[in-house]
């Protein structure tokens, strides 16, 4: 089942075209990595998929609701870690469900509930931001550089969580600068890597669709790896 579908998405900021023609299809159980350098429009494309940005033309369909990991975390500085998670929880959740959810995700990401973002390291802020993305258990995860500021231990943890979400029938689309070995290892055949080579960003429909037999073959993205790309600095 397709959870994310986009066709012919174009976007310009003034005279500068950022997205030339982007199409993509992400199915339940898939983890898709948009792989490209900074400034290629990956974040703009992800924001459009999440519904927080508007395309100039083209169509976007997202089945169910999406959670979005902001590149800059977008945490509320005066709220505690628990407060930042509680902020996004739906009104319908009972007090116990809220408390359990917050406690579970803070614990999973080794965060103290009373810590506040300005006193956290970059890695802690990123983990809190990830916890906020996962806690709602939405079917679609859109993550802008989820591995930035994280060390290899957390690369594995996050990759494992993504694989777990995909196993539950959800999907994830991520943006990054390099192929992450932990992601390859954890997600295996679920992972599809889209190497982006053009700016303004262009994802032809045949590249954006899942390839048939070889789709998600873990060996294929491995071949994209270069020396030194697995040193924990990937985003």
């Amino acid at each position: 089942m397709e959870l994310i579908g986009a066709a012919g998405v174009k976007k310009s900021f003034g005279e500068r075209q950022v997205l030339a023609d982007c199409s993509i299809s992400v199915k339940a159980g898939e983890v898709v990595l948009l792989l490209g350098p900074s400034g290629y429009g990956k974040s703009t494309f992800l924001e459009i998929l999440a519904g927080i940005g508007q395309p100039d033309s083209g169509s976007v369909r997202v089945q169910g609701e999406a959670s979005f990991l902001f590149q800059d975390d977008a945490l509320i500085p005066w709220l505690t870690a628990a407060g930042n998670l509680s902020y996004v929880l739906p009104r319908g959740w009972s007090r116990k469900t809220r408390a359990d959810g917050i406690s579970r995700w803070l614990s999973l990401f080794s965060l103290d509930e009373d810590d506040k973002p300005p006193l956290m390291s970059g890695g802690m802020r990123r983990r809190l931001s990830l916890a906020r993305t996962f806690i709602l258990e939405r079917p679609v995860l859109i993550l802008d550089e989820p591995f930035a500021f994280l060390d290899r231990h957390w690369h594995s943890q996050v990759a494992s969580l993504l694989n777990g979400e995909a196993e539950k029938g959800r999907c994830a689309i991520l943006a990054g600068h390099s192929v992450n070995p932990e992601l390859l290892e954890e997600c295996g055949k679920r992972l599809r890597v889209l190497p982006l080579k053009e700016s303004p960003l262009s994802i032809p429909a045949d590249l954006g669709r899942e390839a048939d037999a070889s789709a998600g073959d873990a060996e294929r993205p491995r071949s994209l790896r270069k020396e030194g790309e697995d040193d924990g600095g990937s985003g």
Binding site: A50, I52, F70, A74, Y87, V88, R91, L136
Partner: peptide
């Protein structure tokens, strides 16, 4: 006010009073 937090609040449909 941080524009990204406003967008985040809309995305997660945070109730207006909260």
């Amino acid at each position: 006010l941080n524009r990204r937090i406003i967008l985040m609040s809309r995305l997660y449909k945070v109730p207006p009073l909260r």
